[in-house]
Every structure is written in structure tokens, then in C-alpha cells.
Design a protein around this nucleic acid. Structure first.
Lengths: 209, 209
DNA sequence: GAAAAAAGTTTCCTATCGGAAACTTTTTTC
DNA sequence: GAAAAAAGTTTCCGATAGGAAACTTTTTTC
């Protein structure tokens, strides 16, 4: 069950309708995707037909780009083959090791200072990454230093590196965290960090959305 | 076509439709989605028509669920309206703050010991999170302690908390990292961490995929 | 290696999509 | 508030998707 012809060419086509205003659209071949999914699951057209409720011939024609399936059909495909709809036209990412790495020696990150924090951005060479790590010295000492909750998409992990902080959040009592303590939270909830030790605290945080 | 075969246990929720084997399909209304996108962009059917190259009537019928657009049409919609295809049938997430948070006091995480590392898993209460943070004491002292590269999906951020380590990776020279130094890398690239200080090093890492 | 079975493709036909234009409803103008 | 314009819907029809079955190709069996 090998030899699946890789139809990896994605030609682009243009909707030319003498009216301009129309862009070139990237042609994604749903057929190749479907075939890959079916064969990877070791299904014959017949079996896929039973699962999806679609005719064998229809599946064949879709796979061979002879017809453009309607949305209804696409839903049946997704449901019957137990996949998410976008999988039908999203090229599975080529998960090959890029080997990218970005070392930041202590104190050498890009600095960004505000009245409440001094942020040292880490791994700034590594673009387009899933997480955003930075180290911060916390100048803030009270909620008033901010005036309002910080709130943003994603999740945040915070570890106290030096000193002692209080984590203030919208839905909970303030919590004191000492060196080594850490917290993981939903960043869409209003949150703030203030130093409560004599020295300004230093924390690491990593966000992801 | 032998191998895994016919008697496949069909999931219990299969809905037999005289032919059996067909599941109920979830009805996603592409029409409502399209209409929302169009009106949010303050476009009339006529304008949307020009942008997509589709007839006004066709757009109207799609919006009113009178027809099921073909994939070709869906591509024209996505391109013309400058959206990603899945937006047409994915309800925008309700990004409301869940307020979830999970505090792990120093030393109180769940421990997991191997011959090379002692891992302290952090934020274990917070399920289904985007990142996986843990603190590790590094016992390993050489590549041979592992025997092979560690390699897994996603990206990894590593910060040295105590001691000194060497980061060994498939594509680069070994790099020594001291307390406070950190690195961000593609975890699909083979990688390993070994202690090189007298004391075993302690590191924080956060992975995301 | 021929016959049988299974898998896949093509044909033929009906149902439905998609476009042009007629029609209806809503909004704007005076 | 009637006329005009714009926006939206429905009708009509040619184009095409999707299903049944015939047909071809590949795989299995003996």
C-alpha cells in the first residue's frame, strides 16, 4: 500500500472576469488530500463510501479532481472519515526539524523598560515561535502603578527567579510567590505582578497563544 | 487489502440510514458565517460579488442556505473576502476568560525520576494547556547516558536556574550555558542536556507544540 | 498464469449548483 | 410620501455535481 502519486504541485489560477477586482486564487487540491487521508487509513473507496454515505464514483472523481465537491459532501467526508474539515485542504505541515535555536546569555536579551517592569526579551532571533519568553524586573509595588488590569490572549507561565512577588488577578485573592514558586494562568483574565520583597523581584515568564 | 479488516467495530453512535454505516453529520451553517463576514466588512452582495467573482444571486442563496457551495466556490469566497477558508465554517471562538490558574510552590510539583533527569512537573492541575513547564535536575553527564538524541514535536525554551549545563544538539556544536543563560530551540532537532558543573545543574524548561 | 475477486474509473443520467435577469424589498432623495 | 436607487431574493436555465451501474485495472487465489 505504498505508491501514492504525489500530486504536490499547486498551480495557481486566476478568476479573470473582465471586471477586475478579482484576485488570483491558490488552487488547493482537495483530491490529493482526500486520497492521502483515505489511503493512510487503509481504506478502499468502497469502505470510505460506506462510512461517508457517498458513492464510490463520487469519491473517485473527487480524488482525481474531476469534480469540486459541495460543502455538504465535504461535511460528510469529514464526519465519515473522522477528521476535521480543514484537514481536507490544509496541507499537513512538513514537520521536519528546522534545527533553529537561539541562545540568550544572561543579561544579553533586548531590554524594554516601562514604569512598572523592565523586560528583557529572550530568544529574539528565533522568529515566529510558539512561545514568547522574557525575564522581568518588577518595579511595580501596587495595583495603582498600573491603573488597570493587564489582559491579553493566550496563557502565561511565570516563575519567580529572585525576590518575592504578589500575583494579583481579577478572579482570585492576591497570592504571594517566593523564589522558585510558579504559576500558570489564563492571560485573558486580568492579571498583574508587583514586587513585595525589599529588592525588586525578578521573574521569568513565558506566554503562548 | 487485508490487514486491519472488515469487522471494524463501528462506533456506537452510528446512525443507520437504510444502508447502515452512516453517521449523523453535524450541521454547520456556512451561510450564516458568510453573511456575518460580509456584513461585518460592510459589503453589499454586489461588492462581495465583484470581489469574489461570484454572482449576486449565488451569494444570496448561499447565505440563505438554499444551496451548498462547491469547494471551488468556497475558495473564491475565501480569496475574494480575504479570509482563511476554515473561517467560513468555524464559529469564532468565544474567547472569554476562564480565569484558570495553577500555582506550584517551589518543590511541590509532581516528581518523575529517570537515570538522566529528575523532572518536577509544574502546573499539573491546569489541564489542556498550551505549554508544559517543568523544572529538572540534570543527572546526565555525557551523551552516552542517553544513548540517543531526544526528539519530539514542538519547541522548547530552557533556562538554567543553577549550575552549568551543556546543550548538545544534532546540528550544532555543544554549547555551555550558565545560570541565567537560556535557549529556545526546535525540539524536533535531536537535543540533550548534561550537567557540567560540580553540582548537578537545575534547569527550567517549557515546551509547546 | 488463468480465473476470480477486489479496487478503481468512466459512463450515463438525474438532481442541484451557479449565473443572468426579472422581481421584490428596503433605503435614499427631493 | 412618491419616485428613484440600491440591496436583496427568486426565477429560469445552462452547467455541473453526485449516484447507479457498466467497464477497466489490479490483486488474489489455486
Amino acid at each position: 500500500m505504498s505508491g501514492q502519486k504525489s500530486v504536490d504541485v499547486y498551480p495557481s489560477m486566476v478568476i479573470a472576469d473582465s471586471q477586475d477586482n478579482v484576485k488570483a486564487i491558490e488552487k488547493i487540491t482537495i483530491g490529493a488530500q482526500l486520497k492521502a487521508i483515505r489511503t493512510n487509513n487503509k481504506l478502499t473507496l468502497e469502505e470510505a463510501s460506506k462510512r461517508t454515505g457517498l458513492a464510490r464514483s463520487t469519491l473517485s472523481k473527487i480524488e482525481n479532481e474531476q469534480i469540486s465537491p459541495t460543502f455538504t459532501v465535504m461535511q460528510k467526508l469529514a464526519t465519515g472519515l473522522d477528521i476535521e474539515l480543514p484537514q481536507l485542504f490544509t496541507k499537513p505541515e512538513k514537520k521536519q526539524a528546522t534545527g533553529r535555536r537561539d541562545i540568550t546569555l544572561s543579561g544579553s536579551g533586548k531590554s524594554h523598560v516601562t514604569s512598572t517592569y523592565e523586560h528583557e526579551l529572550l530568544a529574539t532571533q528565533f522568529s515566529n515561535k510558539k512561545m514568547m519568553p522574557y525575564k522581568s524586573r518588577v518595579y511595580a509595588r501596587s495595583f495603582e502603578d498600573f491603573g488597570e488590569w493587564v489582559r491579553h490572549e493566550g496563557e502565561e507561565f511565570l516563575l519567580v527567579l529572585e525576590g518575592e512577588i504578589q500575583l494579583l488577578t481579577e478572579f482570585y485573592e492576591a497570592t504571594t510567590l517566593k523564589k522558585g514558586d510558579n504559576v500558570y494562568y489564563d492571560a485573558t483574565m486580568g492579571h498583574l505582578v508587583i514586587s513585595v520583597s525589599e529588592e525588586d523581584a525578578v521573574i521569568l515568564w513565558v506566554t503562548a497563544s
